[in-house]
């Protein structure tokens, strides 16, 4: 338990260990700790940012959905209007077509009636001529009196 040279040897040993620790041990470890601290802070900030972005995205999504709904309703309304229009158009077309058909049929009927009348008239003229021929015998020349007979027939 004497104080001897060990004292100085211990002082040197101590100084060497402290110097080594200061130069090669402390800085890398503390730097790593600081770096990790920065990393964690960065990560937390990023998480916070992500959170905000998510909220923003949700809001945007809601807006887009609302817009889409409005557009869809618009389209449906337009389609319904168009459908009504088409039905109306078809109805009016059908009406016009029907009228046209009716008119055509009436015209046909008219024409047929006229034709029948004409035929009848001719037949009556021919019959009258034949009857007149028989009645008048040779006194009437069919060819010379033809216009008279035709006039007559026309009056029927």
């Amino acid at each position: 338990m004497n104080i001897n040279l060990t004292l100085f040897a211990q002082m040197i040993t101590f100084a060497v260990f402290v110097g080594f620790c200061m130069k090669y041990v402390w800085p890398p470890i503390v730097n790593a700790l600081a770096e990790r601290k920065a990393k964690i802070a960065e990560g937390l900030a990023a998480a916070e940012r992500g959170h905000q972005e998510k909220a923003l995205g949700e809001q945007r999504a809601l807006e887009v959905m609302k817009e889409a709904k409005a557009t869809a309703a618009d389209i449906v309304g337009q389609a319904q209007k168009r459908a009504t229009d088409i039905v109306e158009e078809a109805k009016s077309d059908a009406r016009v077509e029907g009228e046209r058909i009716v008119a055509a049929a009436q015209a046909e009927i008219e024409r047929e009636a006229n034709r029948a009348r004409e035929e009848l008239r001719e037949k009556v003229a021919t019959l009258a001529m034949a009857a007149a021929e028989k009645i008048l015998q040779k006194e009437i020349n069919v060819d010379s009196h033809r216009s008279i007979v035709d006039d007559f027939a026309k009056q029927l």
């Binding site: 104080i3 001897n4 060990t6 004292l7 040897a9 211990q10 002082m11 040993t13 100084a15 402290v18």
Partner: peptide, 15 residues
């Protein structure tokens, strides 16, 4: 135990 030797403790304390 080096710290039961006053040389060791005084060495550090003196530094």
């Amino acid at each position: 135990v080096p710290t039961t030797d006053p040389n060791a403790t005084f060495g550090m304390a003196l530094m």
